[in-house]
Simulated scan of single mutants.
Amino acid sequence: MESKADMKRHLILVTAKRIIHEQGITNLTLDAVAKKASISKGGLLYHYPSKEALMKGIAIAIFEDLENCMAKYAEKDPIEKGKWTRAMIEVTKDDLQHNAELNVAVMASSLLDEAVAESISNSYQTALTKLDNDGISPITASVIRLALDGLYYSQMLGVAPLNNTRQRAVLDQLIQMTRQGDI
């Protein structure tokens, strides 16, 4: 069971991500988060004493969610070889269908603070290590990872994003790549 403090931190992070997603990073202020979360600014500052601390908290939470979701998908996958790579594809597919909240928050976080960017990089590297040791060619896993990153960035930046049909076809092709021999 979560403690009251854990529940409050969760509320703060969810609210901050929502503000970033709906209004952009420039509108993320501690006052805005406190107001939207219906908590006092002092209560917010108790858990996150600065905007940078809040952004780092967002980044950590996002990658914990990524790892947990990947683990759930991998656990359900009956085929051992490539299961972590397929899990990352499935997590990406889910997130892209929900406005790429994961990547928007990560990008916003990394732009603010070098320490946050480093934390994000270290967390992502943990996930990528699972792909490298997934039983498929590390090159194939890297190609898949870079394709997923490209899908995110094209959607997030509005640079020729794929329509839903093409996006699903690309994701399906990436899944197939995990089931083929070394490419």
Rank of each mutant, 00 (worst) to 15 (best):
E2P: 05
S3Q: 10
K4M: 12
K4D: 12
A5P: 01
A5F: 02
A5I: 08
D6A: 12
M7I: 06
R9V: 07
L13Q: 07
L13A: 06
V14S: 06
K17D: 07
R18P: 06
I20D: 02
E22N: 05
I25V: 15
T26Y: 10
L28T: 00
L28C: 06
T29L: 01
T29G: 06
V33A: 02
A34P: 05
A34R: 06
K36T: 04
K36F: 04
K36C: 05
K41A: 05
K41C: 07
K41I: 14
G43S: 11
L44E: 09
Y46P: 00
Y48V: 01
P49Q: 08
S50G: 03
K51D: 09
E52L: 07
L54P: 00
M55I: 06
G57R: 06
I58E: 02
I58P: 04
I58A: 04
A59F: 10
D65A: 12
E67K: 14
C69N: 14
M70W: 08
M70T: 02
A71Y: 10
K72M: 04
K72L: 13
Y73H: 14
K76Y: 06
G82Q: 11
G82L: 02
G82E: 09
K83A: 08
W84L: 05
A87I: 09
I89C: 11
I89N: 09
I89E: 10
E90H: 06
V91M: 13
D94V: 09
D94M: 09
D95M: 02
L96Q: 07
H98A: 10
H98D: 11
H98N: 11
N99T: 08
A100Y: 02
E101L: 13
E101M: 12
L102Q: 08
N103E: 05
N103Y: 13
A105S: 14
M107H: 02
A108R: 04
S109N: 01
L111Q: 05
L112G: 11
D113P: 07
A115E: 15
A117W: 07
E118A: 15
E118T: 08
S121N: 10
S121L: 11
Q125G: 08
T126V: 13
A127T: 00
T129C: 03
L131S: 04
D132R: 12
D132N: 07
N133W: 01
N133R: 13
I139E: 13
T140Y: 01
A141Y: 14
S142F: 14
S142C: 12
I144L: 13
L146H: 00
L148Q: 07
L148Y: 10
L148T: 14
D149C: 10
Y152I: 03
Q155A: 04
Q155E: 15
Q155P: 01
Q155N: 05
Q155R: 08
M156G: 00
L157A: 13
V159W: 10
A160E: 14
P161M: 14
P161H: 13
P161Q: 12
P161R: 07
N163C: 08
T165D: 15
R166S: 03
R168I: 03
A169M: 11
L171P: 15
D172Y: 06
D172F: 13
D172K: 09
Q173A: 15
Q173D: 15
L174W: 05
I175L: 14
I175T: 09
Q176V: 03
Q176N: 15
M177Y: 04
T178V: 04
T178P: 10
R179I: 01
Q180L: 15
I183H: 15
I183M: 15
